[in-house]
Design a protein around this nucleic acid. Structure first.
Lengths: 213, 213
DNA sequence: TTAACGATGTGACAAAAGTCACCAATAAGC
DNA sequence: GCTTATTGGTGACTTTTGTCACATCGTTAA
């Protein structure tokens, strides 16, 4: 992966930004990278900047008191972290975990210019609204699946979302990892996957699950 | 309840708004009322305006495909509907149900002036951020309780929240209503309440539950 | 007063999900 | 090669939650 400038990234992943906004951002952002597996955000942490993802993939999840995890959604190039937008502006702490699941590059925008951005750049304002809205809707979907559906349906929903986001039908997930994301147990997931395999919707392999739909 | 003007309401429930903003809003908002039980928002509906709650109480909940309900949170005087803020601006449809649980009055702000507001009134901009943030956090709490906790703990969490929001320890809720809000069944809730009563945390009465903590 | 209705209590059973114990297959390191 | 760790499969059992059937108790309306 060649090393791009902030400007290159903005043109590639944020083409909707008006020219003046891109120039402004190029001047004031710094580029940061995170290694695979690195924690980018955790409860209690303060933000001095907000982040635009431009390479890699970030997994957002909630952590329970008992240490259990609960997957919410991924951020990809072109996305911003809604929470960092809010928390940076308000100087409050975040409530979720964010982990780089691939080598990830972000543009880091200092909070000092956030006021200026939202006030003077219409495309930025719309971008933040869009971001809030999308994350809100993702959360609503998550709530739906937990509130109204059994684990079998949630598993299907999860696998479907993974194929979309990971952009492959060979999902590189162990049963243990799936169980963690859904806050369930490995045995239960194994059994449900078997059922789904017998229905013909997936084929199980070692270390990956093949989605057939 | 005496009939107040938009200006009165703004001074009472939105004192943090700068003077110029209050004047602007007073000029452009209309006052709407909803009767107890009236639906204010439902999936698929478009918004031509956003709403500031100034009297009453609004219940926001998600509706499942099978018709089941799932309570998310209440809006009270001084709150805005985060979704109407987003949806009005973006001209997209909402995804949740909102119902007035008391006679409710709102200030209705036409979308035409939203751009102006966020751009030229700093206190408005902060207010919207605060609104997003609060709703986001409430959703995260809801997710937590469903993802990590059993029905007994969720029930406790629910009752506690109700005492805070309804501002009374005599919760005017039937077991049936509680079951609906938690998307469970009446018998299960009755049994769990009995257990909680035996622990000494509540006393059960006909048509209401007394919270003792 | 009485019939009807809504709210609640409860036992019996079913279904879903979690837990425990253990085994088998594969991969990785030495 | 052998050993070990990881991954996945499975049966037996428990706990939690949902469902069904029915009883009881107040309240309300005719």
């Amino acid at each position: 992966m060649a090393s791009l400038s902030a400007n290159d990234y903005l043109n590639k992943y944020f083409p909707q930004f008006e020219l003046a906004l891109k120039e402004k951002l190029a001047q004031h952002t710094s580029i940061k990278t995170f290694e695979t597996g690195e924690l980018m955000m955790q409860p209690g942490q303060y933000f001095r900047s907000t982040m635009l993802v431009v390479e890699g993939k970030v997994k957002l999840y909630r952590q329970g008191e008992d240490g259990g995890e609960f997957f919410m959604y991924y951020l990809e190039p072109g996305n911003a972290c809604a929470l960092s937008l809010i928390c940076a502006t308000k100087q409050e702490t975040s409530e979720v975990m964010a982990k780089a699941v691939e080598k990830t590059t972000v543009l880091s925008i200092p909070i000092e210019i956030m006021d200026d951005l939202v006030r003077n750049y219409k495309t930025w304002y719309y971008f933040t609204l869009e971001t809030y809205r999308n994350r809100f809707e993702e959360l609503l979907q998550v709530i739906d699946s937990v509130a109204f559906k059994g684990l079998d349906e949630r598993l299907m929903f999860y696998l479907k979302k993974q194929t979309e986001k990971l952009n492959t039908k060979q999902l590189p997930l162990t049963h243990q990892e799936i169980a963690a994301d859904l806050n369930s147990s490995r045995e239960v997931i194994s059994r449900l996957l078997k059922k789904i395999e017998q229905r013909g919707d997936v084929i199980l392999h070692r270390n990956y699950v093949e989605w057939l739909k």
